[in-house]
Design a protein around this nucleic acid. Structure first.
Length: 772
DNA sequence: GAGTTTGAAACT
DNA sequence: CAGTTTCAAACTC
């Protein structure tokens, strides 16, 4: 690992790490809140909420079981965790009622975001922890806490704050009161500190990402210092010694396995630290627990504890990252360090994640796996089954990335075992950090054809995860090729045309559109592009204006949305999918040479489209994708509704796109097996063209793209936009799903984003900005 | 599932 | 650029 370029890259980024913690938290916030572009903003919220619920349910089930076991088994630490759980329960339930009320109050506004972040982290944790290694207790705790937290939206804060409190107070009945007081004081003092808390927690999470206990410790310490530097100092204040002595919670965290607890503790610590900062007095009483956990610095136990904590944080980081990857790649930067460290765990996590994903949409994102993961992600987003499949599938689909990095990575990943892949991907992606945006772009591009958009970023290769996530879901679920003579190296092949590798679901013969033949694929792509630079560009271009206008019904394709080349139908009357215009859900235009055009979406002659009736039909073919996507989108994003929903309905974007989006969204179940991974087309002009189109007004792809990207980019995008107005960000911002999933405030991600941003021109972003 | 239809992609 | 061939999806049975 250390020798790996990725690791080096991460190291180079190391300076940022300290900041990351804070940044990350912010990124989450931004992601959850701001990230979504204007279009997605509202939807994000909704998505997040929904996702929460889903996650909650999922977690609740698993977590509950885990809790029961954990509670019985674990000692102090466990108790603390239990307490935390109780606390959460209290928040919801009257009994302890510590300060749940007050806590909730504070939390409420940010609750969603926090919850999202927490959930994400949780999900990530699950992923990481879930694997066999972790002792049930730890997981149980985390899950429980998570569940509870998720259950009570307000709990986030509580969760963080309470966790420490819990530890401290759990044993002591009065502690709860103290905690409540602390929380209250915190609330009063901190006021909006919850964000800070989040950020802190995020930082912790970042640390957690690293799996290896030792590495984690080291890194964690390092990271902690920078990130939670405040925390460290605080710890002493809190009289960590007492805490440590009193609570061996650290022990509880079985280094690797105990991560769950660690997470909790850490999260609590994060909150505690802040809290402590604010309310040092209270700390002493409750601090014991906290300190024990938090301030292991001096004592060996402390160290171990710290490690555990760190681990926990790391995992969280991973979790965030994971989340981020799935939903928003933004966090990549943050997770980098953690990721690199946690590789081994990741693999396990990923595996676990898969199941989780299935259960939760959260899934983990899993970005983890590159090809597979991406596919899985896509699949997972929609269906758990897919996720599983993806996992099972070694290489799954991969995006074809022109960029050397991406391609190489993809190839490597694809070749690697699923776990390894996931891991590598994660690391790579993280390294790629900026690439995240690219990934989205890639996805978009891939959808349309496009790689081109990402070309710039392709180099960064960050897009992979996103791409994978996005792409796989949509395309995989939706499409498969059945090529027999083209070897899947011609535009006849839908997979190839979509910029994705063929996957198992494909029935193609002599397929060369696989990561193994990456070189061939890329060469062929280049050749085709040389002939037609727009060959891989989306066939349907929407002008943002009309398409999304509220007034228009989704069914009707905006005048702006039209097929790139126009159709040439003669017998189908543009009423069947033979017609690319119809298939794309757009009306025929002057460019069409069709005969007896009866396109429901709009006739060549300019006659008004039939209207809504058409949509269903058009969508039907893609129903799986579209439906899932739509649902997810609708649920998730209100703002986007106009654009997204309409786009989905109206915009007949390529099914791939839809599928991908849906995948990214995570919600949807899957319909179809994962699709080929997207090619990281390097420098295809397409991408650029697409971007331009988007900006200019390419409706279809942009929408989809936006959707895909929404999650991660959003958070970043705003910032980015502010700073650079990178296209990538815009794209990402658009994807509501990710936003939901990862609320990363992630400043660290910001960094990454920034990098990526510059490279991309954010076409979609403009729209988003406008919308915003 | 096999066969037909269709129109885009590829080729000349 | 037009015409032809190839191809695979869409469609039908």
């Amino acid at each position: 690992m250390q020798d790996s370029p990725v690791f080096n890259y991460i190291n180079s980024l190391s300076p940022i790490k300290p900041v990351r913690s804070v940044n990350i938290s912010q990124t989450f916030n931004s992601l959850t809140f701001a990230s979504p572009p204007s279009v997605f903003t509202s939807p994000h919220v909704s998505n997040q909420k929904e996702s929460r619920f889903l996650r909650r349910h999922f977690f609740s089930d698993s977590s509950k079981s885990g809790l029961s076991s954990e509670n019985g088994n674990e000692g102090n630490t466990r108790v603390t965790t239990v307490d935390t759980v109780q606390v959460f329960n209290c928040s919801t339930d009257p009994p302890q009622s510590l300060n749940s009320g007050s806590v909730i109050r504070e939390v409420d506004p940010p609750n969603e975001n926090l919850e999202l972040a927490i959930e994400l982290s949780r999900t990530l944790k699950y992923d990481c922890d879930s694997p066999e290694s972790n002792p049930a207790p730890c997981h149980g705790f985390e899950t429980d806490s998570v569940l509870e937290i998720s259950g009570t939206s307000s709990t986030l804060r509580q969760f963080v704050q309470e966790v420490p409190l819990k530890r401290c107070s759990l044993k002591n009945g009065a502690e709860a009161q103290e905690i409540c007081q602390l929380e209250q004081t915190k609330e009063e003092e901190v006021g909006n500190d919850w964000e800070n808390l989040i950020s802190d927690t995020a930082g912790l999470l970042v640390f957690d990402s690293s799996n290896d206990a030792e590495a984690c410790k080291e890194q964690d310490q390092k990271l902690l210092d920078p990130n939670t530097g405040s925390l460290v100092p605080k710890l002493p204040q809190d009289s960590t010694d007492d805490l440590l002595k009193t609570q061996p919670d650290v022990q509880v965290c079985s280094h690797e396995n105990g991560d769950m607890e660690n997470f909790v503790t850490q999260s609590g610590e994060g909150g505690m630290q802040k809290e402590t900062n604010h309310t040092p007095q209270e700390l002493p009483s409750t601090s014991q627990n906290k300190q024990g956990v938090d301030f292991p610095s001096e004592k060996m136990d402390d160290k171990t504890e710290i490690d555990c904590k760190q681990r926990g944080t790391r995992r969280r980081c991973l979790l965030f990252e994971m989340v981020g990857h799935k939903r928003s790649l933004e966090d990549n930067s943050n997770s980098r360090s953690s990721i690199s460290h946690s590789d081994g765990k990741f693999a396990s996590d990923d595996k676990q994640l898969v199941p989780f994903k299935a259960g939760n949409s959260s899934s983990p994102c899993m970005l983890p796996g590159i090809g597979l993961h991406l596919n899985a992600l896509a699949a997972t987003t929609k269906d758990t089954t897919r996720v599983v499949k993806h996992e099972n599938l070694p290489s799954g689909r991969q995006v074809i990335s022109m960029s050397s990095r991406l391609t190489s990575l993809h190839s490597v990943v694809s070749e690697q075992n699923p776990l390894n892949k996931t891991f590598a991907l994660n690391s790579v992606e993280r390294d790629m950090g900026p690439a995240v945006n690219e990934v989205q772009v890639m996805q978009d591009a891939s959808q349309a054809s496009g790689f081109g958009v990402r070309e710039e970023f392709n180099e960064s290769s960050s897009p992979r995860k996103r791409r994978r996530r996005l792409e796989p879901a949509g395309e995989e679920a939706c499409k498969r090729c059945n090529c027999k003579k083209s070897k899947c190296l011609k535009l006849y092949c839908e997979c190839f045309a979509a910029g994705v590798y063929c996957v198992e679901p494909c029935s193609c013969l002599d397929c060369f559109n696989k990561p193994v033949h990456e070189d061939t694929v890329l060469a062929t792509r280049k050749q085709i592009e040389s002939r037609n630079p727009l060959a891989f560009a989306p066939k349907v271009i929407r002008s943002a204006e009309p398409a999304f206008e509220i007034g228009e019904e989704p069914n009707k394709t905006p005048a702006s949305a039209r097929h790139k080349k126009g159709c040439n139908c003669k017998k189908s009357s543009c009423l069947k999918k033979y017609c690319e215009c119809y298939q794309g859900g757009v009306g025929c235009s002057i460019n069409c040479r069709c005969e007896s055009c009866k396109n429901v979406f709009g006739r060549k002659d300019g006659s008004a489209p039939i209207g809504e009736e058409v949509e269903p039909e058009v969508e039907e073919p893609d129903t799986c994708e579209k439906n899932s996507v739509r649902k997810s989108l609708q649920i998730s994003e209100v703002q986007k509704d106009k654009e997204e929903q309409y786009p989905d309905h109206v915009m007949p974007i390529t099914p791939f796109q839809i599928c991908r989006m849906s995948v990214q969204l995570e919600f949807s179940s899957i319909g179809k097996p994962p699709r080929p991974s997207i090619f990281p087309v390097g420098s295809s002009p397409r991408l650029q063209a697409n971007r331009t189109l988007k900006r200019s007004e390419t409706l279809p792809t942009p929408l989809k793209l936006e959707k895909h990207f929404q999650i991660t980019p959003e958070d970043e995008t705003p910032e980015i936009l502010k700073s650079n107005s990178s296209p990538v960000s815009s794209v990402k911002t658009s994807s509501p799903n990710r936003k939901r999933v990862s609320p990363p405030h992630g400043r660290s991600t910001r960094k990454l984003v920034l990098q990526s941003i510059p490279s991309f021109p954010s076409l979609a972003y403009h729209e988003n900005d406008d919308l915003q």
